[in-house]
Amino acid sequence: MTRVDDNFLVQQTLNGNKNAFRFLVLRYQKPIFKILGALIYDKQMVEEIAQEAFLRAYKSLSSFDPNLGASFSTWLFTIARNLAFNELDKRKIRKANDEKIFGSEELSTDGPDKDLESTQTNTVVRKAVGQLPKEFRMAVVLSCLEGHSISEIAQIEGCSEGTVKSRIFRGKQMLRGFLIPILGDGYGKNL
């Protein structure tokens, strides 16, 4: 089955076909949850913000212009990212949230199996991602998800491509630094 173009679905929605927007929600709900999950851990909050992001997108769909260069997904992810940051700022829980999710303690580097014995790999990786500065976190997660290009990430983050490259490079270096002592040098082979 061929994938229906996003812009076609947007046009259909603007013409009053709500079912077309439903297709867009179904298409992007998973990536949105992943992106929001990288910023906030509270599942309830992730769901609320994801709903709000789709609602905002629906309400301002007429302002989305594919001719300006941004794809629908980039536009949607920008809305979700901004909502997440606004919400976290509003509730002033970012710091507490980080500590709640990822733990305020440093990752253990005592031995390759210590963290793995008590927690799953996903938790270890999430903790490591959570220890990245927030500006690096979003860039690294976006570059790892769904193969976003540098220019798309720059549009979502609202900064230059050079800044994005530097954030991804430094973020991934830091991540490797966190993960190699815990998962071992060949963590790739554990997959």
């Binding site: 929001l36 769901e47 709903q51 790999t121 996903n122 997660v141 790892c144 082979k189 997959l191």
Partner: peptide, 21 residues
């Protein structure tokens, strides 16, 4: 780096609640 990307992507796998759409 491909493994790292996969690890990060998998670790961020928040389950979408059923009936979200």
């Amino acid at each position: 780096y491909q493994s790292l990307a996969l690890l990060v992507s998998d670790s961020m796998d928040f389950e979408v609640p059923s009936g979200f759409a």
